[in-house]
Simulated assay, not measured.
Amino acid sequence: MDISSLIPALGGGILIGLAAIGLMLFNGRIAGISGIVGGIFPFKSNDTGWRVIFLVGLVLSPFLYRIFIGQITEINFDTSLPLLALGGVLVGVGTQLGSGCTSGHGVCGISRLSIRSITATLIFMATAALTVFLIRHVLGA
Protein backbone atom coordinates (compact mmCIF):
# COMPACT_ATOMS: atom_id res chain seq x y z
CA MET A 1 0.00 0.00 0.00
CA ASP A 2 1.38 3.36 -0.96
CA ILE A 3 0.36 6.81 0.19
CA SER A 4 -1.58 7.55 -3.01
CA SER A 5 -4.03 4.78 -2.20
CA LEU A 6 -4.94 6.61 1.02
CA ILE A 7 -5.98 9.81 -0.75
CA PRO A 8 -9.56 8.67 -1.54
CA ALA A 9 -10.02 7.60 2.10
CA LEU A 10 -8.73 10.95 3.31
CA GLY A 11 -11.03 12.75 0.87
CA GLY A 12 -13.98 10.66 2.02
CA GLY A 13 -13.23 11.42 5.65
CA ILE A 14 -13.03 15.12 4.91
CA LEU A 15 -16.37 15.00 3.06
CA ILE A 16 -18.01 13.13 5.96
CA GLY A 17 -16.71 15.76 8.36
CA LEU A 18 -17.92 18.60 6.16
CA ALA A 19 -21.36 16.98 5.81
CA ALA A 20 -21.61 16.60 9.59
CA ILE A 21 -20.54 20.21 10.14
CA GLY A 22 -22.92 21.48 7.46
CA LEU A 23 -25.88 19.60 8.87
CA MET A 24 -25.14 20.94 12.36
CA LEU A 25 -24.55 24.52 11.20
CA PHE A 26 -27.43 24.86 8.79
CA ASN A 27 -30.01 22.52 10.31
CA GLY A 28 -28.98 22.12 13.95
CA ARG A 29 -29.00 18.32 13.52
CA ILE A 30 -26.48 15.59 14.27
CA ALA A 31 -25.45 13.44 11.29
CA GLY A 32 -26.17 10.08 12.89
CA ILE A 33 -27.55 7.86 10.15
CA SER A 34 -29.68 5.67 12.42
CA GLY A 35 -31.35 8.77 13.85
CA ILE A 36 -31.86 10.26 10.40
CA VAL A 37 -33.41 7.05 9.04
CA GLY A 38 -35.40 6.41 12.21
CA GLY A 39 -36.88 9.91 12.04
CA ILE A 40 -38.35 9.40 8.57
CA PHE A 41 -41.10 7.13 9.87
CA PRO A 42 -43.71 8.19 10.82
CA PHE A 43 -43.72 10.97 8.25
CA LYS A 44 -43.69 14.45 9.72
CA SER A 45 -44.12 17.05 7.02
CA ASN A 46 -41.80 19.56 8.68
CA ASP A 47 -39.03 17.10 9.55
CA THR A 48 -38.85 14.57 6.72
CA GLY A 49 -37.51 16.52 3.73
CA TRP A 50 -33.97 17.13 4.96
CA ARG A 51 -33.69 13.50 6.08
CA VAL A 52 -34.69 12.18 2.65
CA ILE A 53 -32.32 14.60 0.89
CA PHE A 54 -29.43 13.58 3.17
CA LEU A 55 -30.06 9.86 2.49
CA VAL A 56 -30.43 10.43 -1.27
CA GLY A 57 -27.06 12.18 -1.16
CA LEU A 58 -25.54 9.15 0.56
CA VAL A 59 -26.88 6.82 -2.12
CA LEU A 60 -25.88 9.08 -5.03
CA SER A 61 -22.34 9.77 -3.78
CA PRO A 62 -20.67 6.69 -5.33
CA PHE A 63 -22.27 7.46 -8.69
CA LEU A 64 -21.08 11.08 -8.54
CA TYR A 65 -17.62 9.89 -7.53
CA ARG A 66 -17.49 7.64 -10.56
CA ILE A 67 -18.64 10.43 -12.90
CA PHE A 68 -16.18 13.05 -11.61
CA ILE A 69 -13.22 11.02 -10.32
CA GLY A 70 -13.23 7.71 -12.17
CA GLN A 71 -13.27 4.05 -11.37
CA ILE A 72 -14.74 2.85 -8.09
CA THR A 73 -12.86 0.08 -6.33
CA GLU A 74 -14.80 -3.17 -6.46
CA ILE A 75 -15.73 -4.59 -3.07
CA ASN A 76 -16.10 -8.33 -2.66
CA PHE A 77 -17.37 -10.06 0.44
CA ASP A 78 -15.99 -13.49 1.18
CA THR A 79 -18.87 -14.47 3.41
CA SER A 80 -22.39 -15.73 2.93
CA LEU A 81 -25.45 -13.57 2.39
CA PRO A 82 -27.18 -14.93 5.55
CA LEU A 83 -24.15 -13.96 7.65
CA LEU A 84 -24.16 -10.47 6.11
CA ALA A 85 -27.90 -10.18 6.83
CA LEU A 86 -27.34 -11.28 10.43
CA GLY A 87 -24.63 -8.63 10.74
CA GLY A 88 -27.07 -6.01 9.48
CA VAL A 89 -29.71 -7.05 12.00
CA LEU A 90 -27.15 -6.95 14.81
CA VAL A 91 -26.06 -3.47 13.76
CA GLY A 92 -29.71 -2.35 13.87
CA VAL A 93 -30.17 -3.82 17.34
CA GLY A 94 -26.91 -2.23 18.46
CA THR A 95 -27.98 1.23 17.29
CA GLN A 96 -31.10 0.91 19.40
CA LEU A 97 -29.21 -0.34 22.46
CA GLY A 98 -26.47 2.26 22.05
CA SER A 99 -28.83 5.17 21.38
CA GLY A 100 -27.19 5.83 18.03
CA CYS A 101 -24.81 4.52 15.43
CA THR A 102 -21.11 4.77 14.77
CA SER A 103 -21.51 7.88 12.64
CA GLY A 104 -23.55 9.69 15.24
CA HIS A 105 -21.35 8.75 18.18
CA GLY A 106 -17.99 8.40 16.45
CA VAL A 107 -18.00 11.36 14.10
CA CYS A 108 -20.37 13.80 15.75
CA GLY A 109 -20.39 12.78 19.41
CA ILE A 110 -16.63 12.61 19.88
CA SER A 111 -16.18 15.97 18.16
CA ARG A 112 -18.62 17.42 20.72
CA LEU A 113 -16.62 15.73 23.52
CA SER A 114 -19.66 13.73 24.59
CA ILE A 115 -18.64 11.22 27.26
CA ARG A 116 -21.54 8.97 26.23
CA SER A 117 -20.37 8.99 22.61
CA ILE A 118 -16.73 8.42 23.51
CA THR A 119 -17.75 5.45 25.66
CA ALA A 120 -20.07 4.09 22.96
CA THR A 121 -17.37 4.40 20.28
CA LEU A 122 -14.83 2.60 22.46
CA ILE A 123 -17.36 -0.20 22.99
CA PHE A 124 -18.14 -0.33 19.22
CA MET A 125 -14.47 -0.62 18.35
CA ALA A 126 -13.63 -3.17 21.05
CA THR A 127 -16.63 -5.29 20.08
CA ALA A 128 -15.69 -5.12 16.40
CA ALA A 129 -12.09 -6.15 17.11
CA LEU A 130 -13.23 -9.03 19.33
CA THR A 131 -15.77 -10.18 16.74
CA VAL A 132 -13.20 -10.20 13.94
CA PHE A 133 -10.73 -12.07 16.13
CA LEU A 134 -13.30 -14.70 17.11
CA ILE A 135 -14.67 -15.22 13.60
CA ARG A 136 -11.33 -15.21 11.78
CA HIS A 137 -9.00 -16.84 14.27
CA VAL A 138 -11.14 -18.93 16.61
CA LEU A 139 -13.95 -20.10 14.34
CA GLY A 140 -11.82 -19.95 11.20
CA ALA A 141 -14.65 -18.52 9.09
Rank of each mutant, 00 (worst) to 15 (best):
F43W: 13
A31Y: 10
R29D: 02
I21V: 15
I33T: 15
G100P: 02
R136N: 14
L55G: 04
L58D: 02
V132R: 03
V132A: 12
L6D: 01
A31D: 08
G28Q: 07
L130G: 11
A85C: 10
S99Y: 10
I115V: 13
I123K: 09
V93A: 14
G140N: 06
G104H: 07
F63H: 08
G32F: 06
V89D: 05
L81D: 00
R116N: 11
D2N: 13
T119H: 07
V91P: 01
Q71K: 11
D2P: 00
P8E: 03
L84P: 01
M125W: 12
Q96W: 04
G98H: 00
S111V: 05
V59H: 07
L113G: 01
V37Y: 02
I118H: 08
K44W: 02
T127H: 02
P8A: 06
L23M: 15
S99P: 00
G13E: 09
V138A: 06
G100A: 05
I135W: 10
V93T: 10
G38C: 04
S4R: 08
G38E: 05
V107H: 03
L130S: 14
D2E: 08
I53H: 04
L86E: 04
L134T: 13
G22T: 10
T127M: 11
S45L: 09
V37I: 14
I53P: 01
F26W: 14
T79L: 05
R116I: 05
C101W: 00
L18F: 14
G22I: 08
R51D: 00
V59F: 12
F54C: 11
R51A: 11
L81C: 00
W50M: 13
S114M: 05
Q96N: 11
I115L: 14
L84S: 02
I40S: 08
F43M: 14
M1E: 06
I135L: 15
L130R: 08
G87V: 00
G39I: 06
H137E: 13
V107R: 06
Y65H: 07
I30S: 11
F54T: 12
L10C: 09
R51Y: 02
L10Q: 05
F68I: 07
H105V: 03
A19D: 01
S34C: 04
P42E: 05
L97K: 09
T79I: 10
L64C: 05
A120N: 08
N46T: 14
T131S: 13
H105Q: 09
H137R: 10
I110N: 11
K44A: 15
R136D: 12
L60K: 03
S80P: 02
G100F: 04
L15C: 10
A85Y: 10
I40E: 07
G92A: 14
G98N: 07
L130F: 10
I118M: 12
I53G: 00
G39K: 10
D47C: 07
F68E: 08
R116K: 15
G12N: 03
G38N: 03
T102C: 07
